[in-house]
Design a protein around this nucleic acid. Sequence first.
DNA 1: TTGAAAGCGTTACCAT
DNA 2: ATGGTAACGCTTTCAA
Lengths: 337, 337
Amino acid sequence: MKATIYDIAREAGVSIATVSQVINGKGKISEERRNEIMEIMERLNYQPSVIAAALAGKKTYTLGLLVPDISNPFFAEIARAVEDRGHQLGYSLVICSTDNKDERVERYLTLLQQKSIDGMIIGTGMDNKEILNPLVEKQIPIAMIARELPEQAVHTVVVDDYIGGKLAGKHLLQLGHSRFAVLAEQAKVRSSRERVRGFREALAEAGQELPERRVLHCDFVVEDGKRRTLELLAQADRPTALFCCNDLLAIGALQAVKELGLRVPQDLSVIGFDNTILASVTDPPLTTVAQPMEEMGTMAVDLLIQELKKEQPQPKQRTVLRPELIIRQSTGVPGQQ
Amino acid sequence: MKATIYDIAREAGVSIATVSQVINGKGKISEERRNEIMEIMERLNYQPSVIAAALAGKKTYTLGLLVPDISNPFFAEIARAVEDRGHQLGYSLVICSTDNKDERVERYLTLLQQKSIDGMIIGTGMDNKEILNPLVEKQIPIAMIARELPEQAVHTVVVDDYIGGKLAGKHLLQLGHSRFAVLAEQAKVRSSRERVRGFREALAEAGQELPERRVLHCDFVVEDGKRRTLELLAQADRPTALFCCNDLLAIGALQAVKELGLRVPQDLSVIGFDNTILASVTDPPLTTVAQPMEEMGTMAVDLLIQELKKEQPQPKQRTVLRPELIIRQSTGVPGQQ
DNA sequence: TTGAAAGCGTTACCAT
DNA sequence: ATGGTAACGCTTTCAA
């Protein structure tokens, strides 16, 4: 069997309390005792049980990460950043892909609670804003990442979606476009709405309008981006510029244009959002609004850990990072050969 | 405070033993008692502590997944499949990105053990084949995925790398190529070695040779693929066909070709491995050898769960899935315009 | 500086 | 059909 604290204590001829002290570096233990005990732990290959420690009042040193889909490159990169920072600080990461379904969110939430994880990072949207209520009441540390939920008092790390949309709009305007369309995520996704709002505002400031029918809502998958773009391009007065609320949709758009034998950016300029690895490998490489995924992950973890270190609830922070326009080759002057 | 089994018992006027029974659906409890207790649990919003149950001898219902890098699309897709299958069966997933470093592997391994996870799925290579010894001895259920370790008795789910390499070689041969090169992963990665061996064998069967100097070893990142391809194309007698041991390297190759003002496939045919989402969005779309990632993930989980359900150690299975050549547009007849 | 003992929230065995 | 209780492995007072 695995060695327990009792085995160590017996071997060392001391009490388990003493062993516990040296494990946690607490109390006053004589140098020699301490060394002797450490040596025995080494020899018996003793590994303290996190489970038992947690039950006795310590933490589980485990964090939960809720995202729509871990196989989506954007969230995969976020996850990596979160994992790394957590690992540095001694925490493990449980991943939960929600597919943006409230039902899955709730299942994962109760599951994580039953497992007594120390805190959760939430990067998935929810239809029902009250889903988090129970957690907030129980004071379970929460940090939102890449999504926000203003109706809850939780730490938040987001990119300024509004500005991101604006950056996209201005870029397209500057290239001389005048017929725009948008591929948005589902209406319930606030960040998507903000991006569209920023985009529309940029156009408005230039006296241009974005008709509602030119804003198409998609599921978070390539195929849907393609399908909707095909619809868009079938319209008589088709747009010359398309703003997609994430890179995946933009890729779908690229595929649709190709399928119709048209060209990007000559026939349609396409701009994405996120700047995942995908944006750099498309044909043509995708102009996109970059989110600083690594910083976001790191900051969310830091916020969370800082919260659960203190006993007192901390004042909730909302950190807004600035997105950056990455110009590649999927945008250009309309109609140019 | 959170409700415990004692609260429920007190409220229902029964013993905790009885409550435990109804939670686990064991023993004989009268219909009425059972309903009454369930109703109270509902009302008090009782959530049994997995931690406590685990300490008392049950499982933690948590699995560990070790991969080189969760932000790598191949592993992200594997992770999603593993997560889904695990979740269906009631298990959570802790992800661990190892960067292919033994040191990180070991840290994660002890961490996961201390947390008493029920089993681990390992998709990362290791220099030291003995790293797993302690786990195997402790009978901790293990399933290898996409990597193998024949020196250990563990469940394994892999694609036939040798055949995959051969498929790639044959395809290139058939197109009429005669000067080949390979971008391999680090020499310690067995699957990569097997792919190269299969590739070489295909050439040999056609009386062609693959000189050792034409096999370049890379780190698992786009940049390295690019760098090495640049080197390759600088050689006098440069290859017309390049087999890359994963899609990421192939993308690097594509970038290198572009940077030199050359074209794919006219100047260089490129073939990848994995068939991640990346392969479908590159310019040109990448011909690649597909691994059935979803099936692999599902099978690995099933193997693991089946193992940890039984008390007795099970006979270890090795499942080899057949890779499939996906022909897109990055391969063609050499020199063709 | 060290030890005894009371929990932590369950499970499971043995009584009743 | 139900209850009492030891055990799981550890932390943490409180005494000594």
